[in-house]
Design a protein around this nucleic acid. Sequence first.
DNA 1: ACGCACTCCGTAAACGTTTACGACTGTAGG
DNA 2: CCTACAGTCGTAAACGTTTACGGAGTGCGT
Lengths: 347, 347
Amino acid sequence: MKGIRQLAEHLNISIGTVSRALNGKPDVNQETRRRVLAAAEELGYVANQSGRSLRQGETKVIGLMIESSKETVENADNFFLGVTSGLQSVFARHKLDLLMLPCPSDEDPHEYLKRMVARRIVDAMIISDTQRVDRRIDFLSRAKIPFVALGRSLSASNFPWIDLDFEGVADHAVERLIALGHRRIAITAPSSEANLGYLFIDSYRRALERHDILFDPSLVIRIRSSEQGGYQAAHELLLLEERPTAVILIYELMAIGLYRRLMESGVMPGRDLAVIGFRDAPRARFLQPSLSCFRISLYDLGVALGRMLLATMPAYREFYPGDGRNIIWPLELMPGESDAFDVGAMV
Amino acid sequence: MKGIRQLAEHLNISIGTVSRALNGKPDVNQETRRRVLAAAEELGYVANQSGRSLRQGETKVIGLMIESSKETVENADNFFLGVTSGLQSVFARHKLDLLMLPCPSDEDPHEYLKRMVARRIVDAMIISDTQRVDRRIDFLSRAKIPFVALGRSLSASNFPWIDLDFEGVADHAVERLIALGHRRIAITAPSSEANLGYLFIDSYRRALERHDILFDPSLVIRIRSSEQGGYQAAHELLLLEERPTAVILIYELMAIGLYRRLMESGVMPGRDLAVIGFRDAPRARFLQPSLSCFRISLYDLGVALGRMLLATMPAYREFYPGDGRNIIWPLELMPGESDAFDVGAMV
DNA sequence: ACGCACTCCGTAAACGTTTACGACTGTAGG
DNA sequence: CCTACAGTCGTAAACGTTTACGGAGTGCGT
């Protein structure tokens, strides 16, 4: 089956009518439409997207850009896959498809994005891992490509984004630990330029100062957010002359490595050192002792992202009237065993 | 900037010449080419991919289909991201781009694939998670779409695939455990129709029979390959009246849940029960005790996949003369602490 | 018999490229 | 002076759709 032309010939109908029948246009006879659909099904005809999108100027595809840097690969968990399922549930209602664009690690994300957008392969974009200043945001705004960002940025004052509530998490974690009697609280953050780290640390610092605890830079451990990073973080913690009694991890998988390094030195997490994790609970719940962790529903986050994106697109805006506003996504603490002790009982 | 027409007008050159200049065709004056390239750069012109691929019938994009079923989302690790980096390193040489197509969990993968292929959005496909009988393979063969599968299948006798050496792993693991004195060895397998499980169990059974050990079906635990699955697997193991002394995990993340459940019952992995994992080591190395695990280089696997795919495509075949043959990908055992004891010392 | 509204369908133009073909130079060789 | 040829470039057709427009047919009321 080559194209709509062959299909039309096979039916002895003009190609215009065939096209209208397939696309559900009103001015076509019921019986004719039935025949066309049947023949299309039988011959396995499906419209060529190049021709179609050339004519209509749209592709019905949304792109989700993810980075495949070394760090991302190491970190990889179910985050993006979980989000995609929420996204797809929204897009499916409008017969939109989702495409993931993995940016090669040796290419500038901005250049990659430009290339992909130029291809006109997607109608809109979702970008993630936003940097403090991120040229992609300027570019997309200027080119008038609908987009939504997963992560705030300083690059523009007004663009659609959803971000996790890092500040709330850091704040909540610090408050909780202080209530348990902790005064020396360490925290981990990524070494990259990702915006997330800055917000995390700032909020941690403010929470401490609220309780008149001096901010000690040596307690901020900048390290890769992986199991290995967790191992190294623990190593650094153990080297400090005045050892902290608690640590907040920015990524829960780090706990695996952290636990191991601690136990190698006979330090028992949840007894000698309180640990709180961040981002996803199910995984960490199976550690021993189970990790206190801030939970997030990836599916719901995906749904919100999808709705916000469609709200920026003229063709779909009407369906999502209230979804244009930026969201700081709240997280819920799932208490585990890893911080369930009162530091007063120590020493 | 609208299209090549505007660019041509701006230069007072015909659009044919502009196109030739941009595409590096030989019959265009050096000076003209320079001017065209400069103007294109300045005005930010990039060819519309719809028009281009409509004319040439190719998109320079390779699709990688991944499933986002509930099981896959739970399992998600760095597997696909790791493979993509290898793939991209190969594709980059030919200016090909990689696209990930996440199949929604509520859609039949076969239908999804058909829709995506019909879109003519990709020139070739990489499919993964092949089932025992997998209609996608028939479809792609019949439609003459170049493809390569990550995983064997019974669906066709002759198609390009690479698969992990499940048989070698099961065989090696059983041999190793028997050499350490184990006689009762449990094994986990996925409950799905994925082909992988069958090969894994078959080989396990054959290895046992080689040593005159009776195959006991109750030692085969069919369970989800996630942390939670690991937890449940341990639970089932503990319920067996005659408890095994070793267990082989088909997915190393299961070890996290397994460890927890064992420790809850005071059973110490690596001392009371030998554990061997499968698929990726770096993650499992940070468990305590560290997991003996079969290692795989995702990057290299991606490279091999990419080469094999290109070897099936007429336009690139010449560059990859020896890459057409199917590969059973070997894995290397990284010994850890989780099976480093002689069962003879027990009891 | 005529006009009108309505339903259905065919025609052809457009979308933005690439490329086969031929035309136009200028130069070299006879 | 004629021919051959290489180097450039313009022209126009083609790729597979969608859709604005108009025309043919029917039924109905006048």
